[in-house]
Amino acid sequence: MLTNPKAIFLDMDGTILNHYNKVSEYTKQVIDELRENGIYVFIATGRAADEIKELVPEGFQVDGIISSNGMAGYVEGEAIFEHSLQLDLVEKIIEKAREQKIYYELFPYGGDRIALEQDRHYMEAEIKDPQPEGVGLNEWLSRQEAIKEAINWKAQIEGNKFSKFYFFARTKEHINQWKDELENIKQDIDFTTSISSAHNVEVMVANVNKATGIKEMLQHFDLSGVETLAIGDSNNDLPMFQFADYAVAMKNASDQIKEIVDDVTEFTCDDDGVYHYLKSIVVRDSIRNT
């Protein structure tokens, strides 16, 4: 058991975020304690960096943020690395998404997420209540919020720096068909895909994931080679789990995820599982060893 790591990497959705997309004061408190004891704490999330401030308590701080599944890294609000999808790939994927009527969100750097106005009718239909069986509450609430407030509907794609695509479908059959189409597109332009639920898939630059983002963050802080701990809950955390010295899955993770990690939290994300795990194991032992 790794009880005194130098750097900790925390996923958000299903990990430090509960199913209502909020980080608790307890989680903030334990992160503050860790940092006060000389342990670096980082967020490693599939979300874009601009989304995070609306989800965390006032005064929430970490040493750095790895966003969009490793596409970008930020320290004190400043980018230390950013990878960008090619514009020709973006345009081709949107064209194919329209053919299959797949819900999408394109995330440009420094701006609101984008979708095209001509696709709005079918995207809104995909998010209408009732919540489909099997779709997680946090993902469903995020999509409804995006449709109502977060998406910037455009007549055409603007800009040339994009951190990722997010795709969603009401049914597993629909999203699996789209995954097959992405594999076809990949024959012409290489890219990486990542999955955080059975109803979504995301697209990033080829060979970029949470592990590559962690490596770049560790290099920035001159922490290469230190012992690391990672906590997450889903498939997009697998590269992070493989890279970290000690991998911890949330109690609410799937059995598939739990089978490949070193430990599992006693509590779920809705019961402050990260707080309890870090408080009982890491904080206690780091204080003991100081």
Rank of each mutant, 00 (worst) to 15 (best):
M1D: 08
M1P: 06
L2R: 04
T3G: 09
T3W: 00
T3D: 10
N4Q: 12
K6A: 13
K6N: 09
K6Y: 00
K6E: 11
M12R: 09
T15E: 03
T15H: 09
Y20M: 14
N21A: 15
K28V: 01
K28H: 10
Q29H: 13
Q29W: 07
I31K: 02
R35P: 03
N37G: 04
Y40R: 15
I43L: 15
A48M: 01
Q61K: 15
I80E: 05
L85A: 03
L89G: 10
L89T: 05
V90H: 11
E91G: 11
I93L: 14
E95G: 13
Y103V: 06
Y104M: 06
Y109F: 15
Q118T: 07
M123E: 08
E124C: 11
D129I: 04
L137E: 14
E139V: 07
L141N: 14
K148D: 12
E149M: 06
I151S: 14
W153P: 07
K154N: 13
A155G: 13
N160A: 14
N160Y: 04
K161W: 00
K161R: 08
F162N: 08
K164H: 06
F167K: 12
F167S: 12
R170Y: 13
I175F: 10
I175L: 02
Q177V: 07
L182E: 02
N184F: 01
K186Q: 14
D188F: 00
S194P: 00
I195Q: 14
S196A: 13
S196R: 05
N200D: 13
N200Y: 00
E202M: 09
V203R: 07
V205C: 05
N207V: 03
E216P: 00
M217T: 14
S224L: 12
N236E: 04
M240P: 04
F241V: 06
F241I: 02
Y246K: 05
Y246E: 10
A249V: 03
M250D: 10
E259W: 01
D263P: 13
V264I: 11
F267K: 15
D272E: 13
D272F: 08
G273L: 03
H276S: 12
I281C: 00
V283K: 08
V283Y: 04
D285H: 09
D285L: 01
S286Q: 07
